[in-house]
Design a protein around this nucleic acid. Structure first.
Lengths: 228, 228
DNA sequence: TAGAGGTTCGAACGAACGTTCGGTTAGCTC
DNA sequence: GAGCTAACCGAACGTTCGTTCGAACCTCTA
């Protein structure tokens, strides 16, 4: 996992927000911070945010307790940096992949595949993102919540596309949140030794969800374009 | 929520396991313990297990810090008692309701309805159950894990019934865990002011899931009993 | 090679944590 | 009302928590 050149650019000024948006410096500082964040993700993943201590992180990184604070200003900012980087990366990749596709069903499959692929490849950070959902407070919490809302809206948009294309009538909100449940719950059960990989899981969950939505929804009254 | 007459009967002896299995004493002790557990559920729900302190619980119950320990032996047992009672209650209710029904599709709808109804009526305890999944250690953790496995197996059995009845071939494990994701994720989003109630949600999620399973699965090769 | 600034550290801070101890109070039986 | 046990409490225990301070170290430039 490369966390280099992390952008903070928070609404409230933070210690590390010292680069302009476009350039990618990858200095020694950035590389070391990325290394620390990787270790922090693993520790939060194992023990939860509250259960993890800065001394655990000190032990894992081999850095002194005081030395860690050269790279961030508080434990809370640590969580914020992990969540922000994870969320923005998954959304960025999704946007790129959606550019290629126009078929509504295909676009929803891309959403599911992108989510699962990133989830399984970065399970520590993704559990920290989903499990520690309400942990951040005030400004930082609001910023992550805004990104989450973006992600929700993208998915809702994809489903409304599908509904229009096939002339379906259903609750987009319930469908999106059901889908989020399906794909996010993975961190509680996925075992790489016995469970399928991201491609296979995405196909199966895509089948389950899409057939569910399409066949459970009632067709709109007039001008229904739904096949059969 | 009535938590009276809680049975502990752990594998390892616990302080409160002092009643035989069948009788329902409902003594002053039991009633006060149930009251404490209700408050504890709410605090764990708000702040998480690690984030909640015994002083929070002391404040909420109006009881002294030392006085609390008259009712349980540790904070961990507190979590254990909440999880055990919640899980056994939901399973007990499910078993009763399943007695009436024979149609496989109907039985899965009963499962979903039972889960959602209890979830929305006891959201604090149910979040504590699902969110603090890996918190308990050793004996107590193993005991809750065993109950969870029971619950999983019941659901898997219902799905296999459906598969046999309709001649479907699909991964029961993936279907069960997807369903669990859908229904358990609720605690992250359900807002009683804007979202539907348990009956309506159970119907919609039942539609989504059942149509998904039935239409996504490929029919078995020979002796398919599937209608149409 | 001197100086500057980025990097790292040992040691400690005050606060909060879960739990315990010795003792007091309340409710019950005789 | 004496005697007993369950119920409860104030005060503290020892530990761990996130964070900070001043000083040292390293690395690069002038």
């Amino acid at each position: 996992m490369s966390l280099a050149a992390i952008e903070t650019q928070s609404q409230e000024p933070v210690k590390n927000g010292r680069k302009s948006a476009s350039e990618v410096p990858d200095t020694r500082f950035d590389r070391r911070l990325a290394d620390v964040l990787t270790h922090a993700s693993r520790i939060f993943w194992e023990k939860g945010y509250e259960g993890a201590s800065m001394r655990d992180l000190s032990r894992a990184t081999g850095m002194s307790l005081a030395g860690l604070y050269h790279y961030f200003e508080s434990k809370e900012e640590l969580l914020y940096l992990i969540q922000k980087h994870t969320f923005t990366t998954i959304i960025e990749r999704l946007r790129q992949r959606l550019e290629d596709a126009t078929d509504p069903e295909e676009r929803i499959r891309i959403f599911i595949h992108n989510h699962l692929e990133y989830f399984l490849a970065n399970k520590e950070a993704m559990k920290v993102l989903t499990h520690e959902d309400e942990t951040l407070k005030n400004g930082r919490g609001a910023e992550i919540a805004a990104i989450k809302r973006d992600y929700y809206r993208i998915c809702l948009g994809l489903l409304e596309e599908l509904g229009r294309a096939q002339g379906l009538q259903f609750s987009g909100r319930l469908a999106v949140l059901s889908l989020f449940g399906m794909v996010n719950w993975i961190y509680t059960w996925h075992n790489p030794r016995i469970d399928a990989d991201a491609n296979s899981l995405a196909r199966q969950m895509g089948d389950l969800f899409l057939h569910g939505v399409i066949h459970a929804a009632k067709p709109k009254r007039k001008n229904s374009k739904r096949k059969l």
